[in-house]
C-alpha cells in the first residue's frame, strides 16, 4: 500500500510569547515540533503499512528548517520524506497551500507510483483552520474522510475503506473507495516511538528537497501570497477592558474568602441565586 502523510512543522504553541509593547510574536528560541495532530495520522499510516506492506512517504511545505520535522517522521518509521521549499510559497493561505501540496503530490505519484491513501492531521495547532486536508482532497479529486476515529477495514484488493467518523451526536460508519484522504481524530491511537534502527536510518537519510520547479508546479501565480485570495489586514492584541475585574479581598481564611466571593457574585447578578439553587437541586 502506498501511503502519503502530510505534516507541518509548528512552533510549540505553549511556548509562544507576544512582545508586550510591539504585539509581535517573539519567535526566537521557541522550539518547533511536528504538529501533534499529524502524529495520529502518521501512526495510522504506519500501522497500515506494517499490515499490508508498501511504503509511507511524508511531505511538508515550509522553510528549510522543516527538514528536522521530516527527519523525525523517518525516525518514527516513515520510509521517505519530501520537503517542498521555495520562496514562491511564502505567505500562502489555505487555498494557495493546497495548490502547492496537490501539485507536489502529483509529482510524488509520477515518481513513485499512484497513492492508495493520503493522510493529513485534523488541523494544525498554529493555523487551526482544519481546511488544508479538505482542500488537498478536492484538488486531487480524492474522497475525503475527516474526524476519523477508527479505520475499521482497508481492503487493498477491493480498493475499499470502512471507517468510523466523529459526527454531531454520534458516529458515522462510512464505506468508500481508495484512493481517499483521511484525517485522524486526536487520541485515536498510541503513537510509536520508533525503533533504534529507524533512528539511525533517519539520522543518515537524505531529506528529498524540492523547489517549485522540482515539483513541476505549473502556475507560480497560484502559490504563496500571490495565490492567496485572503489577506491579513491587521494583527492585534484584544483590547483590554477599561474596567478590570472587580477584586474581592480575600478573607482571613478560605471559608471567609468563599463567603465574600459568593456575596459578590450574587450582588452583581441577583437572578443567578435562584437559577443556581434550581440547578444545584437538579431541576
Amino acid at each position: 500500500m502506498k501511503i502519503l502523510v502530510c505534516i507541518k512543522q509548528v512552533p510549540d504553541s505553549a511556548q509562544i510569547r507576544v512582545h508586550p509593547v510591539t504585539n509581535t510574536i517573539m519567535r526566537q528560541g521557541v522550539p518547533t515540533i511536528i504538529n501533534p495532530y499529524d502524529l495520529f495520522s502518521l501512526e495510522e499510516a504506519l500501522k497500515l503499512r506494517d499490515k499490508f506492506g508498501g511504503e509511507v512517504t511524508t511531505l511538508t511545505m515550509g522553510p528549510p528548517m522543516a527538514a528536522d520535522a521530516l527527519r523525525k517522521t523517518m525516525a518514527i518509521g516513515a520510509d521517505r520524506a519530501i520537503l517542498l521549499t521555495d520562496r514562491f510559497f511564502a505567505g500562502a493561505d489555505t487555498l494557495a497551500t493546497t495548490y502547492a501540496l496537490a501539485q507536489a503530490i502529483n509529482k510524488i505519484q509520477k515518481t513513485w507510483g499512484a497513492l492508495d491513501l493520503v493522510f493529513t492531521g485534523k488541523q494544525t495547532i498554529d493555523g487551526d483552520t482544519a481546511q488544508v486536508g479538505p482542500g488537498v482532497a478536492k484538488r486531487l479529486g480524492l474522497l475525503q474522510l475527516t474526524y476519523v476515529s477508527k479505520i475499521v477495514e482497508a481492503d487493498e484488493e477491493k480498493r475499499e475503506v470502512v471507517i468510523e467518523r466523529r459526527a454531531e451526536g454520534g458516529t458515522q460508519v462510512l464505506k468508500t473507495k481508495m484512493p481517499c484522504l483521511i484525517a485522524m481524530l486526536e487520541g485515536t491511537n498510541e503513537v510509536r516511538r520508533g525503533s533504534i534502527s529507524d533512528s539511525l536510518r533517519a539520522a543518515r537519510a537524505d531529506i528529498i528537497t524540492w523547489s517549485a520547479k522540482d515539483a513541476e508546479i505549473e502556475d507560480l501565480t497560484k502559490c504563496g501570497l500571490k495565490g492567496s485570495p485572503t489577506i491579513v489586514k491587521k494583527v492585534f492584541a484584544p483590547p483590554v477592558r477599561t474596567d478590570r475585574a472587580a477584586f474581592v479581598e480575600p478573607g482571613k481564611n478560605a471559608g471567609d474568602s468563599a463567603d465574600v466571593l459568593i456575596e459578590a457574585i450574587f450582588k452583581r447578578h441577583p437572578a443567578l441565586e435562584d437559577d443556581m439553587t434550581k440547578l444545584a437541586s437538579g431541576f
Partner: peptide, 17 residues
C-alpha cells in the same frame, strides 16, 4: 480570528474573490 496559536487576533479579508 485568533492567530499564532491563539496569542493574537487578526482581521482577514477576501478582496478579489
Amino acid at each position: 480570528r485568533p492567530t499564532f496559536g491563539g496569542s493574537l487576533l487578526c482581521t482577514i479579508y477576501t478582496l478579489n474573490y
